[in-house]
Amino acid sequence: MRSFTYERATDARGAVAAVSRPGAKFISGGTNLLDLMKLEVERPSHLVDISRLPLTDIEELPDGGLRIGAQATNSDTAADARVRTHYPVLTQALVAGASGQLRNKASVGGNLLQRTRCPYFYDTAAGCNKRDPGSGCSAIGGFNRIHAILGVSDACIATHPSDMAVAMTVLEAQVELLDADGSARRVAVTDFHRLPGDTPHIETVLRPGEMITGVVLPPPPPGRQIYRKVRDRASYEFALVSVAVIVATDRGTISSARAAFGGVAHKPWRSVEAEAALTGHPAAMATYRAAAEAAMRDAVGRGHNDFKIELARRTLCRTLAQAAQATEAG
C-alpha cells in the first residue's frame, strides 16, 4: 500500500472541497477501497473520510417516498422498518450481499461505487482497460465465468457487483449528488452507472469531486417485489445472476411489471424489453418465457459465462411466477 494522507470531513461542503485536490478520494466503509489500495489497484494520495458526515438518516418524504442518507450502513438500511415494509426488494437485496460484518461497515453510497470483482482488474500484472486504460482486456480470452453478457464492449466485459443497486433500479431510485461548487443534482440510478464502451475506467456519471449524499426512493409502485440472487454458495458470494422484479396483476393479467438483472452487465441492467413483454399479458409461464427471451435477446457469452444466459432466463421466469402468484393470492 502506498503512503497516503487522511482527513475526516466534518460537513458535506467541506468534504467536496477537500476531495478536489489531486489524488484525493473519498472513503466511507472502506470495504472495497482498502482491499484495492493494498493491491495498488487504487493508489490515492489523500483520503477524505466521509463516514461520519451527518448523512445517515432515513427519512420519509412528503410524496410518500423515502430518502436514505448516503452514509446509512447497508445493515441499518436493510433493517429499517419502512424499507422492509414498503421496499422489501431492497432489504432482500441488501441482506443477500456480502456478510454481516461487511454490511455493518458498508455505506449505501459506497455500495453504489464498489468496483468490479473481475480477477484481472485486481491483478496489476494483467492487462485491464478499467484499471489501466489501453492495456487491453484480459478477461476476453481468459477466465471469464463471472463476466457480463449484456452491454459489453471489446474493451471490457466486467460486471457491477452490487445487489442493492439492482433493487434500487426497479424502485426507480434517484441518486442525490453534491458537486464541489456546492450545487446539487439528482440522477436516476439507471443513468448513474455507465456501460463500458471504450472508457470502462469511467464507471459512473459522477463529476470529479462530486459526492453522493443520498438515495431517494419514490413511493413504492403497486405489486409484489422480489429479489432473487443465484450464486455458487449460500452466502458471502457475489451473484452469478440476480433478478429484481416488481409485478402487479389484475385478474390474471400483468398490469405492471419492472425487472432488472444483476451480475450480467457493467451496470444494474433494467430490462425494458422484458417489461414490455409482460405488461398487459397473462400472468403465465409462456409470458415469462417471452419476457426472458426478450431480455436476453442481445446477450453474448464469452465461453465460461455462456451459462449465464440460460440461467438469467430461468431465474427471471421463476421470480416472475412467484411474484405474480403472490399478488394473485394476496
Binding site: P119, A126, G142
Partner: peptide, 25 residues
Amino acid sequence: GAVDPRSGAFVNRDLAQYLVPVHAD
C-alpha cells in the same frame, strides 16, 4: 483453481474467488 491458459497464473487466487464452504453452506 482456474488457470489462465496464456500466463499459467491461477486467476482466482484469493478466498473471495476460490470458494470453500461458508457456514451457510
